[in-house]
């Protein structure tokens, strides 16, 4: 509770949390089908209808309601982002702990493998994975997770290495705690703070990458509503129907901004050294 109060007391935390909660609410309504219109129904007489009382943000080339599509698009983006970050953080944490705990050749081999993955520009690696597995939602999740995993491994390994040499770990070992217990109770629990910050920033980045992949036609496939695809489709109609571009564009931006603000606030709260700096 104190933690939540700290977030709401922090100026960017307050705004970031409000944005993220608003997006979650919109996505939730979208998932329950509580959208103003059916996002897939084509209102043929109202094609390219500008924003109005009936269609709050207008309609697209096929007469589909933009507001409804945005709500489901947010849901789609968030699903991909949350799933991919969960996979990346999960595997990355296990690998980071393993590298720190087993040390020596394991540490060397794992970290060199991560160096190889980090030598690729992120979007290029994601593209390569999508090419191998074919475009789609599951592939996006895996690609984003794979690209972000090395960063989690590094974030976990560093502190784990220094915690490993602390007295309380030696003490736990000497009275016979199991390795798994030490790893989760003594190491992992002490790394939760940097991990939380990283997860939040990773979510911002995952939203960006999902939208980017979809924009290139490698992510979510039509006719499923997707912010990246909507933005990409809007390009040819930019002058006649600018709302097609502005609405999904600002929606993507807002979501990323929300997580970035939240991540900044969390860093300030969890690491007092950097307070007011970044």
């Amino acid at each position: 509770m104190a933690f939540l109060r700290a977030i709401f007391r922090h100026p960017s935390g307050r705004i970031g949390a409000a944005i993220v909660l608003a997006y979650l609410a919109l996505a939730g309504l979208g998932a329950l089908g509580l959208t103003p219109h059916d996002p897939l129904v084509q209102h043929r007489l109202d094609r390219l209808h500008p924003p109005s009382a009936t269609y709050w943000l207008g309609t697209d080339l096929f007469g589909r309601d933009i507001t409804s599509r945005l709500m489901q698009g947010i849901g789609q983006s968030f699903r991909v982002a949350f799933l991919s970050v969960a996979v990346a953080a999960g595997i990355g944490t296990v690998l980071g702990l393993a590298a720190a705990w087993f040390g020596r050749i394991w540490d060397g081999a794992l970290m060199r493998a991560m160096d190889i993955l980090l030598a690729f520009p992120a979007i290029l690696l994601a593209m390569l994975i999508v090419a191998v597995m074919g475009p789609g939602t599951q592939t996006s999740v895996l690609a984003i997770a794979f690209v972000y995993m090395p960063i989690f491994t590094r974030v976990v390994r560093g502190p784990a290495l220094s915690l490993k040499t602390r007295n309380f770990v030696d003490a736990a070992r000497s009275f016979g705690s199991s390795t798994v217990y030490i790893l989760t109770r003594h190491l992992l629990l002490n790394i939760v703070a940097p991990l939380t910050v990283q997860v939040t920033l990773a979510l911002a980045w995952a939203l960006l990458t999902e939208a980017g992949l979809s924009f290139l036609g490698l992510g979510t496939q039509p006719p499923a509503p997707s912010l990246g695809v909507m933005l990409s489709d809007s390009r040819n109609l930019m002058e006649t129907a600018p709302w097609l571009m502005i609405a999904p564009g600002l929606t993507i931006m807002g979501g990323i901004l929300g997580f970035n603000l939240l991540g900044d606030a969390l860093r300030d709260i969890l690491d007092p050294k950097t307070r007011g700096r970044a």
Partner: peptide, 14 residues
């Protein structure tokens, strides 16, 4: 903060 949160494709199209 806003600049950092704006994807290149959104900024470019705008």
């Amino acid at each position: 903060m806003i600049g950092q949160s704006t994807p290149s494709f959104v900024f470019g199209l705008l």
